[in-house]
């Protein structure tokens, strides 16, 4: 029978799951935006995520910047890295390759190249070990809840930021003039151009937003854990694939639901189940959902190619 300590333990696991799900949400939103609007499955997204954590580490370890400026600079840096890939590679592939399937393939490989370069920069500069910003930049406070359960202020910040970012992105895509253009470009770039939309600007700004969201996730995770390494980027990337498939590519709401669902499932398996099967959850979900309901389990796409 679950007594008070067990209930506290469960609450703690739930809090951990929600914090993990919030980081996943921020990560997956950018990936979904890029795939849904521009047909880019950006495999450099995980590397950009780690790169932002690394930037914050570099900017704060000598005490040069405090938390908020470092966060902003790192997000801009992550956005700029993603835009660099768009400008140097994706844009050319999109305009020069007639065959859509071949363009998708080439963008995939180009993004792998980008991931390799970014990973190399980070691991060279950090000596290929774990790194993290100093604890002084964010004074962590823990609030005790029932039993052994507790939540820290950075964890609360992560959840609040993730919810705000998801709501903000959702509203931006649905209501704003720019968001309307993003959806139009996703459906038909040529006609969008004929209506006066600057398609390459929309592509660049979309990729910037996608990269900055990955950067936001990366910085918050780095500050929360204070120990990040290059390999973590790939774990998040693979989990995010499952989020996109379960939530449906191009759906903000679907991505949010799927991110928390997967976070809770993985946390539960690690806490109470066969720990080694943890990674299998994401892969099994990808396979099952694609077999049963390829358009995703939840909301219908808000921005998606025809």
């Amino acid at each position: 029978m679950p007594g008070a300590p067990a209930a506290g333990e469960m609450l703690q696991q739930l809090i951990n799951a929600i914090v993990f799900g919030s980081v996943l949400t921020l990560f997956a939103l950018g990936l979904s935006l890029a795939w849904g609007t521009l047909d880019v499955l950006n495999l450099a997204h995980g590397a950009v995520f780690i790169f932002a954590g690394y930037l914050t580490y570099e900017l704060t370890r000598q005490g040069a910047l405090s938390f908020v400026p470092a966060l902003i600079v790192s997000m801009v840096g992550a956005g700029a890295a993603t835009v660099a890939l768009e400008v140097l590679a994706f844009r050319f592939i999109r305009t020069r390759f007639a065959n859509k399937r071949q363009a998708e393939l080439s963008m995939l490989v180009a993004s792998i190249g980008g991931a390799i370069i970014i990973d190399q920069v980070v691991s060279n500069e950090t000596g290929a070990t774990t790194f993290g910003p100093p604890s002084s930049i964010f004074k962590v406070r823990e609030y005790h809840l029932t039993g052994s359960a507790g939540i820290t202020n950075i964890q609360i910040l992560i959840v609040v930021v993730a919810v705000l970012a998801a709501v903000g992105l959702d509203q931006w895509v649905r209501r704003s003039r720019q968001g309307r253009a993003v959806r139009a470009v996703a459906y038909d770039p040529v006609t969008s151009g004929l209506l006066g939309v600057n398609v390459s600007f929309v592509a660049i700004s979309t990729m910037f937003v996608a990269g900055a969201l990955a950067g936001l996730a990366g910085v918050l995770l780095a500050v929360n854990l204070r120990a990040e390494e290059v390999a973590v980027g790939q774990d998040y990337l693979l989990t995010a694939f499952a989020i996109l498939i379960v939530g449906g590519v191009g759906s903000v709401r679907g991505a949010v639901l799927a991110a928390y669902l997967i976070a809770i499932a993985e946390t539960a398996v690690v806490a109470y189940g066969p720990t080694q099967w943890r990674d299998g959850i994401a892969f099994l979900l990808i396979l099952l959902v694609l077999l049963v309901r390829p358009q995703g389990l939840f909301a219908k796409a808000q921005f998606q190619r025809a």
Binding site: W35, D39, L41, K100, R101, E104, L108, L238, F241, A242, L244, I245, P274, Q276, W277, D279, G280, A282, F283, L284, I286, L287, L290, L291, P294
Partner: peptide, 23 residues
Amino acid sequence: LRDLYLALATVAFDLMVGVVALN
């Protein structure tokens, strides 16, 4: 399945084989 969806499904299959082997 076609295109990127097929790619992701087969990637999931590959990685699932690894998870099963590990367990």
